[in-house]
């Protein structure tokens, strides 16, 4: 690994100051620039994160009264006719858009056949079966996905890592028991667990997080267990044991940081998979409740109309695929770099 700080000690002196944590993180991210695939992944992911942040900013500004319709329409506001992509939103005088009189928020058309009506913007991706702007629903939907997928993944790791560390470090009956639990959960089609759980306790964001944690933790546990089995025989672990460090210290300070490489790669892959899972639940009608935009739900609602209005289903499909692709490419780039040294 080419480390900028290591070169300072080239004159035979060891570097006196260990680089700060932040600068090491920055140096690590800079390494990713060597991988084209990884950079494309970073680009896609950043694109969607920016969208989600803009969507949040947009709704904050609309709520504060700074903007009246926002940069894009609110997700459930525009009740226009079914329109193909790139069509103009023309509203006649006296109507309301998002409960505001059209005169206040749109510009009047002064010439042409629609003279006297108001132009309220363009439906870049058309409207869906209820006349809502598809672009704005995808735009706001990115918030939902990028909030709950990382939370669910984080929870899965928060449960899976301690289990894996305990199983790998302790061995014996702890290992047998935890491995058996993992086997039981993994031997069953995961999707059915989700469906059963969600139909029993109802669809809400928290329940989806719980279901994903339950189903993903065993897989994480297996990975961490394997890594721990390897790392627990290292000298620094023996040293810590000899020093009389408590077990939790050895697990979380000595072993876990040294297992981070594969875990970071796995977390990116898993994030992509969790996004797919949330989408599948939405697709099966078990996702977040309807009015909020949710990519999987959008595909489910509009797939019946794909014959006459293909744009309604194509764009949400592309949105979710590009986000998952971003995380997968990122994971591949990270793996390529971590294998290099």
């Amino acid at each position: 690994m080419t480390d900028a700080t290591a070169n300072q000690g080239a004159g035979g002196r060891a570097p006196r100051v260990t680089p700060s944590r932040l600068s090491r993180v920055v140096a690590g991210i800079a390494l990713l620039r060597e991988s084209t695939v990884g950079m494309v992944g970073v680009g896609l992911v950043l694109l969607w994160i920016t969208m989600a942040l803009l969507a949040t900013l947009n709704s904050l500004l609309v709520e504060a009264g700074v903007l009246q319709l926002g940069f894009v329409f609110p997700p459930n506001a525009t009740l226009a006719p079914l329109m193909p992509p790139m069509s103009d939103f023309v509203v006649r005088a006296g109507a309301t858009v998002n409960e505001l009189p059209v005169e206040q928020i749109c510009s009047e058309i002064t010439s042409g056949e629609n003279q006297g009506s108001y132009s309220c913007g363009t439906f870049w991706l058309g409207t869906d079966h209820l006349g809502r702007d598809i672009w704005s629903r995808i735009f706001y939907g990115s918030q939902t996905v990028l909030t709950w997928a990382p939370i669910a993944t984080f929870c899965a790791y928060a449960v899976g890592i301690p289990m894996g560390l305990a199983a790998g470090y302790r061995g014996g009956w702890v290992d047998d028991f935890l491995s058996f639990v993992a086997n039981v959960i993994l031997s069953f089609p995961v999707l059915v667990l989700f469906v059963l759980f969600i139909t029993l306790v109802g669809a809400s964001a928290i329940n989806i997080v719980v279901a994903i944690t339950f189903a993903s933790a065993p897989g994480i546990m297996r990975i961490v267990r394997g890594l721990t089995l390897d790392l627990r025989t290292r000298e620094y672990v023996f040293a810590a044991q000899t020093r009389g460090e408590p077990t939790w210290w050895i697990l979380f300070v000595e072993i876990l940081p040294n297992a981070r490489g594969p875990l970071i790669v796995d977390s990116m892959l898993r994030l992509g998979y969790v996004i797919i899972t949330i989408g599948v639940l939405g697709f099966l009608g078990l996702g977040l409740p309807p009015p909020d935009p949710d990519w999987g739900g959008m595909i489910n609602e509009t797939r019946q109309m794909a014959m006459s209005f293909p744009w309604m289903v194509i764009f949400p499909c592309l949105a979710i695929s590009s986000l998952v692709l971003g995380f997968n490419l990122l994971a591949d780039g990270l793996r390529e770099i971590s294998l290099r040294d």
């Binding site: 595909i299 499909c317 592309l318 692709l325 490419l329």
Partner: peptide, 27 residues
């Protein structure tokens, strides 16, 4: 080949199924 395989694995089934239907069934 590597990039192709990443791309195809990234398209979830519930997205590729409508996309394929649009192309092969409707168009």
């Amino acid at each position: 080949i590597s990039v192709t395989s990443i791309v195809t694995t990234s398209v979830p089934e519930f997205a590729s199924a409508p996309l394929l239907s649009v192309v092969f069934v409707f168009w």
